[in-house]
Write a protein that binds this DNA or RNA. Structure first.
Length: 257
DNA sequence: ACGCGTGTTACTGT
DNA sequence: GACAGTAACACGCG
């Protein structure tokens, strides 16, 4: 549900809430999609002190020094800070800390997942230094529809459906463009726009929703927004479907094919 | 009331 | 076999 900018804000806020706190217990309610056995998760983090929370791609990482817990919320995962044991609906698991607070992960679809010591996939994080113009130019030597390419986590980690639309509009590239037909200058600019759009979104969400640890903030999006009829520069917003996902765009964006 | 929305995986097609 | 595209997962919200 949340995208990269939301997750970035969650991680900062979760750090504030739980940093330096010790895990008293891990409680798994629905373990069918866990990537590791419950016993392994418990052994990995119970009794350990949380050093920090950060984001990698669309995952949240809970760093316990000698062990790291990776949490992926998938489409519908939610986080709740809970006190005591009033269980949320569709709870996957709860982490209880020694400050009488807990963190509950819920997902009605049961898809949110937790794993111990996750490995980064081969894609580079969208906000990392590794996402350079050179890297982008290389991976764009592909016949893939550019929007699909941006959302491919094996190439760039962290861009989801909504922000792909925002980024492509700002870059002036039609989402239906074929990646390897986009001119070098546009690719160079796209690299810059990816970071700019995501960072601006983080800034905005921090400002409007300072303590956010769950849900998503999307009402400020310029293009991927069902309430908007026109772009900031006056282009009529149209919608279609790419890769089975709703895509918003305007004629201001150049189609390369 | 009912259609829409979000990411990944496993599958199909080229 | 490599690379691209797509249905399904199943419920809450407006």
């Amino acid at each position: 549900m949340p995208e990269l900018p939301d997750l970035e804000v969650f991680s900062a806020n979760l750090s504030k809430l739980f940093k330096g706190k010790k895990v008293t217990s891990v409680k798994v309610i629905n373990g069918k999609n866990l990537k590791d056995p419950v016993a392994k998760l418990k052994k990995g983090v119970e009794g350990k002190t949380l050093e920090q929370v950060y984001r990698s791609g669309k995952e949240l990482r809970f760093d316990f020094g000698d062990a790291t817990l990776g949490l992926h919320l998938m489409l519908h995962g939610n986080l709740y800070v809970v006190s005591k044991s009033k269980e949320q609906k569709h709870t996957i698991a709860e982490l209880h800390f020694n400050n009488d607070k807990g963190l509950a992960v819920t997902d009605w679809q049961g898809k949110a997942n937790i794993r111990l010591n996750p490995e980064d996939k081969k894609g580079v994080d969208a906000l990392s230094k590794e996402l350079t113009v050179k890297y982008l130019a290389e991976v764009m030597q592909s016949k893939a529809i550019v929007k699909n390419l941006l959302m491919n986590q094996d190439i760039i980690r962290g861009i989801g459906n909504a922000y792909a639309d925002e980024i492509l509009w700002k870059a002036g590239i039609s989402p239906l463009s074929v990646s390897n037909k986009i001119p070098a200058a546009k690719v160079r600019n796209l690299a810059k726009v990816i970071k700019q759009v995501l960072k601006d979104a983080v800034k905005h969400i921090k400002k409007t929703n300072p303590g956010l640890v769950t849900g998503e903030v999307r009402d400020f999006l310029s293009i991927h927004n069902s309430k908007k009829k026109t772009s900031p520069t006056g282009g009529e917003i149209k919608s279609g479907s790419i890769g089975g996902r709703k895509t918003y765009y305007t004629e201001e964006q150049q189609l390369y094919h």
